[in-house]
Simulated assay, not measured.
Amino acid sequence: MAQITKCLNEWNATVEALGQGKQTILIRNYNTTLPNFILYPTVSYALKDNYLESFQPKYRDFVEENALPLKENSKFLVKYFAKVEKVIEKPVSRVGSLKNYYIWTSEHVKSYMNTPKAKVWILRVYELKEPVMAERTRGMRYANLLEPVSLEGIKPVLTDSEFIKIMNKIE
Rank of each mutant, 00 (worst) to 15 (best):
K79C: 11
Y80S: 01
E130T: 12
K75H: 10
S93A: 14
L18D: 09
C7L: 14
A82W: 07
E147H: 10
K71S: 09
N12S: 05
T24N: 13
T5R: 14
V157Y: 07
T42L: 04
L39D: 09
F81Y: 15
W11P: 00
S150I: 04
A134Y: 00
M1Y: 02
E72Q: 09
L151G: 05
D61Y: 01
S54C: 12
K86H: 05
F81T: 04
R141N: 13
Y30W: 14
N12A: 07
N29E: 12
V125C: 02
N168D: 15
N50A: 10
A82L: 06
R124Q: 15
E135Y: 00
S161F: 10
N168T: 09
K71T: 12
V63H: 04
N168E: 15
R28V: 04
I4W: 05
A82Y: 06
K79R: 15
L151H: 06
G19H: 03
A13E: 10
E152Q: 13
L128M: 01
L26P: 03
G96C: 06
K22P: 07
P69K: 08
F37I: 01
L158D: 06
L26Y: 00
Y51T: 07
A143G: 08
V125G: 09
G21W: 13
K75D: 01
K83A: 03
A82H: 03
K117Q: 09
Q56V: 01
V132H: 09
V15F: 03
V95T: 11
T115S: 08
V87D: 12
A2H: 13
T5L: 04
R141I: 15
Y102S: 05
Q23I: 10
Q20R: 13
G139T: 09
M113G: 00
V120F: 07
T32Y: 13
K117A: 05
L52W: 11
E64A: 12
M133F: 15
L68W: 11
I154C: 08
Y59E: 04
T159R: 11
N36V: 02
Y40I: 07
K48E: 15
P35W: 02
I166S: 11
T14V: 14
D160T: 08
K86V: 04
R136D: 07
R141A: 13
V149E: 08
K165N: 15
T33H: 09
T32Q: 07
S161L: 14
S74M: 09
L47P: 00
T5E: 07
S150P: 03
K169E: 15
Q20Y: 12
W11A: 05
S44W: 05
K119A: 09
K99I: 11
L18T: 08
T5S: 13
F62Q: 03
